[in-house]
Amino acid sequence: MKLEYFQMIDRVASLEGEAIVVESTIPEASPVFEGHFPGYPLMPGVLLVETMAQASGWLLLKLMAFERMPFLMGVKEAKFRSFIGPGTPVTVHAQRLHDGSGYAVTKARIEAGGKRICDAELTLRIMDFPAPELAAAMKARGQELGLA
């Protein structure tokens, strides 16, 4: 993970049907941990949501052959069950629950050491790429992840 660049996904472990499993390691050091919290560094819950959204996003990008872009627009039933700190490897599971017209709904969770850290239901709006640079960047990163 590179928290300052919002790059939350390190590698794709598997993608089968409408479900993806990705792996990442929370960095040992980041300015984020200087504020959250001094003397007790914790991965912020909002960044855990972002991580689940990105796993969902890569899944949807792959299912749509990188032709359209998913944007996070709703988070429901988010539960943060355990603290998680720097240097922790995590596994992120995301599954498409519903393929709507112009939107998709996913269910995602993060685990560390076999223990559930958090989970949520996410709604993503599906749009045409608003900029060619974004489409190119997503495809390039998708190729690095073995998805594009």
């Binding site: 709507g100 017209s101 709006r125």
Partner: peptide, 25 residues
């Protein structure tokens, strides 16, 4: 628009269909 998509999701599930919101729009 956000509430409307929640409503469309609920309609999709309740009626077992895919409301073509994009085409309508």
């Amino acid at each position: 628009s956000l509430d409307f998509l929640d409503i469309v999701f609920a309609i999709d599930k309740a009626f077992g269909i895919k409301v073509p919101v994009e085409a309508w729009t």
